[in-house]
Design a protein around this nucleic acid. Structure first.
Lengths: 185, 185, 185, 185
DNA sequence: GATGAATGAGCGTTCATTCAT
DNA sequence: TATGAATGAACGCTCATTCAT
């Protein structure tokens, strides 16, 4: 299969990150031992230290390299178009919801790692800004009723996030309908 | 002051729980050592085991005996009265917000302990039920616009909770105004 | 046998130092593992850390608390009297020689620990000063031939020390006779 | 420059020994890792094992191939001539002193390696024999006062050696003057 | 009831060594 | 010849837990 050294190293690194994400999500950062991590990646503990300086460095690499802020921007950007506001909004929230679902392990790690506040804050701020700008624009265009766009964005984000977190995902269409009833858009 | 055996034991137990709550919130459940806990309570590690079978048992006792579900019911119950719905609602949400603030340590422990999901779910379910019932009743009475009460309750709860969690508390009056604008109540 | 806690702790500490001295001398500081040290003291590795912060701290305690500089002063002081200079000198050197022999393990540790230079320097300086002063006094009194007392002290010390170190102890009477032949004292 | 295989191999081996001597002297034999050694020689750890069976084998090669006993014989031999005994003696001791200074790293390794006793003993024995023979011959010739030549050789050697070891080199002329005052040679 | 000495399992990490490339 | 990824056996050290006093 002729894999070069460089490729092999990169592949191994990803493999270790993958395994770590799974194990951390399962047992928590403190609860997972280096042995656990190594076994999950089917290597020996020593090897882990060729790729990461410490267990903590592995956590950091996970948070930095697998953080989903870039994905968030990307996914939300794809939803900005000329469709009716309610539809676009549902699309945005749905994208966010799916992002959380796709990264459930990572979210769990965030919380377990004691990095929750910082990571969550960043995510929330960015997401709320994106949604808030959209709402303000559509309200200015008269398509949505006048409202506190920043607060609305907070509300929408929080509801979707908590829904995922408590294991009972929210129906984004119903959520949009609650804040912007069809009758008065 | 002649404290009875029974009183002394109870007092010591509470003292240990108090100290544990502080230490756990500060260092996390895994990060806190039994020695830390003992020092914070100004006793020796050995004594801790007269009152709790293990460190984990101490965590459980904290979650069970210091859980704020009872407080939630009590505080929310006090807000049910004949005032205008928006006012009562702001009161309810404010009470919930203050509850979270007052128990910030405990909330942190919940998250750090990996018991987050269960504990949060319970809290959310109960709180949403209480708020939802109130909303449904007032909507039925025509005081509030017709709406999806369950979803509204979720939204309100989530927004307040995330606000506390990210360190930027929400203004409940503005929140209520967003969902139930004065004009159309 | 009714040993108090305090006594027991002190006894245990000494026991650990004793065992460490033996093991360090046998295997060298780096070569000796904490497990080795614990086994030699017939305790578990963990206990060692109740008495010393680290393996290095144990080495330091050994060097500080078992250092033989105090013994050197004490033993040499006992040899200052009114007997003929050659006799006193032989006594002094003999005392030094015995000190090294009695502390052979510790000397080995000094060398193995990389603290050799500092420790040796201190020992040599002190010993040479004591011997040098004595020589100068007796030379001034006309009992010994005029000579470079500092150099003589260095010579005497070095010869005895190397003798011990290479495993072939020197005959102090012969050594004294070499520097201060009977004929010309 | 077309180096033959054999030359290249020999060159590499020397390079590794050079680097090892430096690193061992700096960090001690136990303290130096194979990685340290490889880096100092600007090769990879694996290559080291093509030239030496183990880290210990490298130490042994250093002690055997870089031992300064041959140098000692060579340098001391060069000092045997017809000049006055005191002058020749000072030359011999000076040569020995310079030898120690030139091989300070190696001496350090000897000590750190726990091979001190054997290596030192050999060196001392050889040196003392060479000096002792010279002293005996000159005493027999009446140029030096009658004395215990073996003991004198020990004394001279020890004093020079300890001087180097403690970092305060001895003045060999003064040393010779102490044992063989000009007046009575 | 309270102590703290003692245990022992297991932690994160290092490192001499091997071997496929 | 030379590489460096990979191993596995320790290493120093921590800590929840026990128990004689």
């Amino acid at each position: 299969m002729a894999r070069t050294r460089r490729e092999q190293a990169e592949w191994r690194r990803e493999q270790l990150l993958d395994a770590a994400l799974r194990v951390f999500a399962d047992k928590g950062v403190d609860g997972a031992t280096v042995k656990d991590l190594a076994q999950a990646a089917e290597v020996t503990p020593g090897l882990l230290y060729r790729y990461f300086d410490s267990k903590e460095a592995l956590v950091q690499a996970l948070l930095t390299e697998r953080g989903f802020l870039p994905q968030l921007r990307e996914r939300l950007a794809g939803e900005h178009d000329a469709r009716p506001a309610a539809e676009v909004l549902a699309g945005l929230l749905g994208a966010f919801d799916r992002l959380l679902a796709d990264n459930a392990d990572l979210v769990t790690v965030f919380f377990s790692a004691g990095h929750a506040r910082a990571a969550l804050g960043e995510l929330a701020a960015e997401g709320q800004r994106l949604i808030g700008d959209f709402l303000a624009a559509r309200a200015a265009a008269g398509e949505l009723r006048p409202h506190d766009s920043a607060m609305a964005a907070r509300t929408l984000f929080a509801t979707v996030a908590i829904g995922r977190r408590t294991g009972s995902p929210v129906d984004v269409a119903q959520l949009v309908e609650l804040l912007f009833p069809q009758a008065e858009r």
